[in-house]
Amino acid sequence: MMLQIRDLHKTFDNHSGEVLKGVSLSVDKGDVTAILGPSGSGKTTLLRCINFLETANAGTMIFEDRKIDMTRAGKSLISFIRKKTAFVFQNYNLFLNQSVLHNVTLGLTSGRKMHRAQAETIAMEALRRVGMAEKALAYPGALSGGQQQRVAIARAIATSPEIIYFDEPTSALDPELIGEVLSVMREIAQDGMTMLVVTHEMEFARHVSNHVVFMEQGVIIESAASEAFFASPKTDRAQAFVRSIMHQHQM
């Protein structure tokens, strides 16, 4: 077991009611898990708690055989876990003052104290994998959204993480740019990367991920192998959700 979350609860001070009401899930090495669910169901909050960008109110994480109380993980433990994980944001969050190359090397040189030359070799290889090697010296502001997200994915894979979290990586993109990002994600998945992906892309969930988790109002109401899920979602709500998304995409 690569990552396991047990009974994760999260409340925000300025938001009434629990946003996460006891979420549990586990991810095996090499798994590509898609998290589906309507907007506001707590998907982003779940990923943010898992990477300690938010502090959970209750919950246990088991990460590579380490048992971690998510409410009181200390700085050094958080830093240890973050060095073994990566995060791809909905709006890319590239470092705007750094070139594409340095966006990828910073996590290696500054985060992991790697020598610059070695970091640049690794970064160029990562950029090549996402098809952005020719843009290594460009700045994020000169790139399209799809290119920026591919650089963000290069930044994530360059550090050889155990798992990459994706939070709706294609939701901010113009429709014609979604394909290039999804195909990069598909290739990374095929290379064996463990991925936890919040997405509304049903094609990705169905054909690339091997596991699907359906969330609503802060709870996971269905969790299944993706073939089984798409063949026949067990719960009515998951059925309705899948149908409505499919419908939107046909229009």
Binding site: N51, N91, A152
Partner: peptide
């Protein structure tokens, strides 16, 4: 400065 960059830095393992 767009604040997501700070979080992106943390997630990249930077302090």
């Amino acid at each position: 400065v767009p604040s997501g960059q700070l979080e992106a830095g943390y997630c990249a393992g930077m302090r």
